[in-house]
Design a protein around this nucleic acid. Structure first.
Lengths: 145, 145
DNA sequence: TTATTCCCCACCAATTTAATCGGGAATGAG
DNA sequence: CTCATTCCCGATTAAATTGGTGGGGAATAA
């Protein structure tokens, strides 16, 4: 059980955007060279993120992408969910008529849904801003002056 | 991000075995019809579980499979790990030479490793017995007499 | 009206997942 | 001993998903 490349690339992209001034747009070409993801593949990802209201974009000269919300209020959970859908899902794999005994142990369902909730709590509680500040804790440096 | 069929079927199988008297063996044919999983596919799964010491088996007439440990001391984590390997790994998705800026935000790594720990705690803390008692809480009924 | 930049959909290749097939080896009954 | 039974095991195949490409269309602003 791991995260897909798409999810990983999406996280790279939004972190790059979060690391730039909020009213500056970045073109897909720039995002591509910074993140190391091909323009065409990134395109799919950015469009999906846009459709979900995480990014906004502008066409034509001087256009590009930017976050549609402050980095403080975009969470890992939101981004991941756009790309990968539900986390920790067991029941979605069972088809409609396929319900023999033990196909869906309700106890099992319950446990997995609890786990799902826990994961989501952590992911929905971590903002892009928080990730950035973990990467370069400049606040801490202030104390060294 | 979801669990594979193999994992799901493995969980079905061990729950069925956990729901039978500990010293009774079930043949693969029975497990197949109860769980709704084909004999041949189930075979792969049971052999993997056996190799990891979760099941034991006996060949010939009257043979079959049974848990190699009490249901109380087999956890969801053990079963899932046999089928799917590591849970929730992000760092493994980045290849060696592929490390441009933002490829590995250390803050992101840290957060994901925290999440991984949390998931494992829940999964390693839930036994088959516990799942069964969630499915049919007969202890609760005793109070109604 | 034209260069620029995002938008959209279809396609392809590689990998992984799901499942099947055809025997082989241990076990115990007779 | 031999034979039915039941697990063991590797190879193969089919379907689905993932990762990635390509080509053209639509908005925007100079």
């Amino acid at each position: 059980m791991r995260f897909s490349k798409k999810t990983e690339y999406a996280l790279r992209a939004v972190l790059i955007l979060a690391d730039h001034p909020p009213n500056q747009t970045l073109q897909i070409q720039e995002l591509s060279s910074i993140s190391g993801v091909s323009v065409k593949f990134l395109e799919q990802i950015l469009l999906a993120l846009k459709k979900e209201g995480i990014l906004r974009s502008k066409r034509g000269v001087g256009g590009g992408y930017q976050l549609d919300l402050p980095a403080r209020s975009i969470t890992l959970g939101q981004v991941i969910r756009v790309m990968d859908g539900d986390l920790c899902n067991l029941s979605s794999t069972t088809t409609s008529h396929d319900t023999p005994a033990y196909a869906g142990s309700s106890g099992l369902q319950t446990r997995f849904s609890e786990i799902d909730t826990q994961i989501n709590q952590v992911l929905n509680d971590t903002s892009l801003e928080e990730i950035l500040s973990m990467d370069r804790p400049k606040d801490v440096l202030a104390f060294d002056i």
